[in-house]
Structure formats: C-alpha cells, structure tokens
Write a protein that binds this DNA or RNA. Sequence first.
DNA 1: GTTGAAAATAGCACGAA
DNA 2: TTCGTGCTATTTTCAAC
Lengths: 159, 159
Amino acid sequence: MLKAKTPKNLQSGKSTLDEADARIVAALDSDARLSMSELARLVGMSAPSVSERVRRLGSAGVIRGFTVDVDTRAIGYQIRAMVRIRPLPGKLHLVEKLIQERPEFVECDKITGDDPFLARLVVHSIEQMDDVLEVLSEHAVTSTAVIKGTSVKRRLPPL
Amino acid sequence: MLKAKTPKNLQSGKSTLDEADARIVAALDSDARLSMSELARLVGMSAPSVSERVRRLGSAGVIRGFTVDVDTRAIGYQIRAMVRIRPLPGKLHLVEKLIQERPEFVECDKITGDDPFLARLVVHSIEQMDDVLEVLSEHAVTSTAVIKGTSVKRRLPPL
DNA sequence: GTTGAAAATAGCACGAA
DNA sequence: TTCGTGCTATTTTCAAC
C-alpha cells in the first residue's frame, strides 16, 4: 500500500509531483484510457482517491487533456517534415496566420534564432508538400527537412 | 442517425477514414477518456458499434494508443528548446544513443539535411540545458533554439 | 484516503438489415 | 459483414467515516 499525503505544491506550478501523482501520470501516459479502478491497482490506492487526484491534476493544469496517438501514415499521410520558416520583413503575423490556417501544419513553435517558426508538416505526397509551401513562398523563406524516422518517440521527462 | 458503411480500406493503410471513424478519432483526440456510450452519442451510433470501431482502429494501426497531454511547465520544466544535432564523422550511432539515454530529450526525429537529428528538449533551467548539451559537445555540433511560444498546438491533419 | 451502495458503463451474445 | 438490443459484470460516483 502506498501512502502519500496530498500534494499542496500543485498550485505553485513549479514543483515536482509526489510519487503517487507521478505514477498516475506515467500510467496514463502509457494508456490514457485505463479505468480508475485499474489505475488504482497500479498505484496501490483506492479508486476514489485516484479519481480525485486525476481531477486535481487536471484543474492544476498538469494534465491538459487526454489525446489519441494517431499514426498519420496509416491514414494516407505518407510524408512528414519539419519546416523552418522565416517571414519576410513585416510579414510575421501574416505568415503565422497562414500556418495556422493550413491544417497540414500539425504543430508550430515560435523559436529564437534566425527562423521564427518551426513547424511540423504532414502531407500525402511531395506534390502536396509543394502546394503547402507554395502558399508561404511569397511571404517567407522556408527550409524543409523530411523526417526519415524517429529516434525518440514522444515521451515525458522525468517526473 | 449516421449510417456509414464499414471501411474495408483500413488494412491498405493508405486511405482516408470513413465519416464515422473520422468523427470517432476526432472526438477521442479532443478527449481520449470519453466513455464508449458518450462517444456513441457523439457519432450517432450504438455503443457496441463504436466500441468495435475503436478496437479496429487500434488493430489497424490508425490509433497507436491513448496518451495524456502534460504541461511540463506545470511540473517545473520551465524551458523547452529545439536542438539540431550534427554528429561528428563516425559518431552518428553513438550520438543517437546519447540522445535516447537523456530523458530530457522528449522527442527526436531523424531528418534529411545537414543536421541528422532534431530533438525536443525540456529542462528546468538554462544550467540544466547546458549540462545536457555538454554531454553531446564532444561528439556532435548542436544548434539550440529556445521555444518562446506556440503558434499551432499539436493537432490532427484533416481526416 | 477508505469503504460500501446506487447509477452508469462496458462487454458479450444474439438477431436484424 | 456491420449495426443494434438486452443481458450481466465491472466501473464510476457519492455518501459517510
């Protein structure tokens, strides 16, 4: 049995999780659809306790939500690429809007350095990739690197 | 009520989803913990049908799993960065292993271009970032761009 | 954080289209 | 085939402790 006192540190937003919460988050990361009762078994607590902790992790902002890991290749998106995007002078916001409006950009971070945006692109074909980049071409300079494989699949940092 | 004929195209691995599957995947993406009965309500089918479709999407490889979206800043990881990594000659595999062994690298793609790896790094502080990059420094050249914000939060391409 | 009871849900077998 | 109905077992939730 695992006895862990309730963390008061969630609100500070800067601390580490206690052991029970860490185990809960790790378990949910490997399968977000685990039932509360099974989750309870895994962490050695009762279901209501675990349920309450999950609720608290949600309202504390640690858990933003639960999502599905979709293999885009299995639904026809054969090509993934990372695109660095440098808007021409004065076109930063326009370019950002264009990126957001193109659903093939499935992720985009604003970063420091020469290229303000780094976006993940998912397309069916090279032709489609070209179509998407064409939209940006008169407003930004882009550098595209096709993804050949994965060395580290998305994972959580140490909890 | 939604009548959609069952897709025979899942096995081909290259096709698009039928409307029911698309709605199921989209709904699960917004909340992977939806109950089958609620999911059934959302897509206008019975719970057993939806349940079977989710099972099939899993075994077809479309759904790889269900995960939790954790806000790493809420657990003390204040800094995120994208790191381009170019191993020195002959050190490609060594560097890949070093990346995989460092849990602060929460994602790493192998890409085309001058820099073979593009990794996402999550750390508590600049000092920790330096520590992590130091490990690579004698085997690779790295270019680090700190993430200032997000333009597009991770999302699915059109289904 | 735990226990126990009521309500909701999941999973299975079956029949219908 | 795939979808829907009715059943039982499990799970979730809420109460009280």
